[in-house]
Nucleic acid binder design. Structure first.
Lengths: 335, 335
DNA sequence: CTGAAAGCGCTAACAG
DNA sequence: CTGTTAGCGCTTTCAG
């Protein structure tokens, strides 16, 4: 490894001068600048950022922690984060926890040891309280999508209850009375809120929810698949299904296809989260769309406000509205 | 920030003892161990890994550089990498270049400054020669999926030519003679090899390729969409389309759906890369499947061999075979 | 304008 | 078994 010392030696100047020239292209006499840059180039010198970080106290890296890298929702958020990080000359370290609290803790511990300057996180479970330990002064973070109740920090979330409410109300208006809900993880706020939105829509319509219609799908493809099969085996089948996230929608569609249930003739379907295939699916899927990319950019902007000390003292919580995108997977109920 | 010094002070021992106890739970007298751990706990001490990395010369982080985080192919690879990294007590930093050479260079420069111990990369373009500069001794890396010609390193690739050959031969056997190819980026080996496989299949069948049937899709959804529209506008339409990756397949299907072209009655379709939605798509998609997860684990294992010095001196190139998964999107040609 | 030297927080000889 | 001390490579006072 060639270090600043080697460059200084080669250039015949002090390491201080090398450091200065490298960090400020206008520093010093033209002559010395030339010598330094020539030496650096000749030796193929690459400054050691670890050493730099050590003295500077920052790494110019932020982390984005997501629970499921296969879910387009999170990858789309990631692109938003990356774009603003890039603007601030930061790199983003993407960490996938796979909904695993152990892995999440490992990452957070890594962060606490100053490897990143801050992070954005969609927690695996809101029962995890690893975040309590992080000192927000030296390591700011912002919640995205899912928050931990009781842990205060900046947050960018979507009004999940409202999204679910809109979806279920839409179905109700089409005359459906037996709407299956493939529910998300009950240990996440998003999972619980979408369930509440479902219940509220029923309540607003003055109809009682049949609890048999609410099946756990755990936010996974497999969960959605199994949940749908369970729903189909019910004595009295639902006429519509609302899947509370992207992955479960995929599982649901797979089960429906296998069982040769026609959409929307035999079953109306609404998914939470839009995605690239939802639009060209036959029939095109009606979904609740979240502003994923914006969530990413907003979260990153707030994080950089903290990093640069330009953020207001109080925590900011921005709640975005989801949107119902009506396509062709829901029809009127058939008696 | 509480440092090792504070802990030493609190515990009434030297910093060396603190360091030792923290790194070796069996070190020293029971009494001192107790004092140290108690002090550390009381102060909420978290070792500064940057400082540690500085003296150790490693960070216990590897990076995985991918060109498109929205592409399931790469996210699946990522999960393979993560699983083995986890086994070795390493964290993985996922870096998305968005097929952008500038971003890729920024990441590589970051790596060269010792922020990671090694990396796995699917290059944005094989014309990028940033990798020439990295010193494989101090910063090993392994190519995955795409390699740079002329840059020698370990590599895990798929026999792309063979995959494309199988797909096109399948179509040829079904009687298709006019097979549209939505080709990938010509500045990547995968893009070129899939094109060659297409041509070879034609040649093997003794048929001349109509160059009008080969349209560039740039590996993106939009590219696939536009390419398909171009193909549909041809005086003499193809009867089948082979899309050379995941994203372009999505774009292709969207264009076909819009134009109300029925699959497989009016158009047979084969995609390169399997994905979660391909199976439940109506009709289920015939695809060339790559062993994504294994590619990730293999690449990571080789990287760790390098990191631990247990790798053979010569570069390893493992070539995996893709598999043709026949489902229902291809039918016999209709005259 | 430039160099010497003090540290950033930690590990690892080297002594005792 | 434990403490002292010398760095790791870099930035940044502080002098000259």
């Amino acid at each position: 490894m060639t270090t600043i010392k080697d460059v200084a030696l080669e250039a015949g100047v002090s390491i201080a001068s090398v450091s200065r020239v490298l960090n400020d292209p206008n520093y010093g006499s033209v002559e010395m600048r030339m010598k330094v840059t020539a030496a650096a180039k000749k030796l193929g010198y690459q400054p050691n950022k670890i050493a730099r970080s050590m003295v500077m106290g920052r790494t110019n890296i932020i982390a984005l922690v997501i629970p499921d890298i296969r879910n387009q929702f999170f990858t789309s958020v990631a692109r938003g984060v990356e774009d603003v990080a890039s603007k601030y000359e930061y790199r983003v370290m993407l960490c996938n926890t796979d909904e695993n609290s152990i892995r999440q803790r490992q990452y957070i511990d890594t962060f606490r040891s100053k490897i990143v300057d801050g992070f954005i996180i969609a927690v695996a479970s809101d029962r995890d309280h690893d975040l309590d330990k992080v000192d927000r002064e030296t390591l700011p973070f912002v919640f995205i999508d899912r928050v931990c109740e009781g842990v205060s920090a900046d947050a960018i979330v979507v009004d999940n209850r409202n999204g679910a409410y809109k979806a279920v109300s839409h179905l109700l208006e089409l005359g459906h009375r037996r709407i299956g809900l493939i529910a998300g993880k009950s240990d996440t706020l998003t999972g619980r809120e979408r369930l509440r939105g479902y219940e509220e829509a029923y309540r607003a319509a003055g109809i009682t929810v049949d609890q048999a219609l609410v099946v756990d799908g755990n936010f996974t493809i497999e969960g959605g698949y199994e949940a749908t099969k369970a729903l189909l085996e019910l004595g009295e089948r639902p006429t519509a299904i609302f899947a509370a996230n992207n992955s479960m929608t995929i599982g649901c569609l797979r089960a429906l296809t296998e069982a040769q249930v026609r959409i929307p003739e035999d079953m109306s379907v609404i998914g939470f989260d839009d995605s690239e295939w939802a639009e060209f699916f036959v029939p095109p899927l009606t979904v609740v769309r979240q502003p994923t990319y914006s969530m990413g950019t907003l979260a990153a902007e707030i994080l950089f406000q903290r990093l640069t000390g330009t953020a207001p003292p109080e925590w900011q919580e921005v709640v975005l509205k989801p949107e119902l995108v009506i396509r062709a997977s829901c029809g009127p109920v058939r008696w």
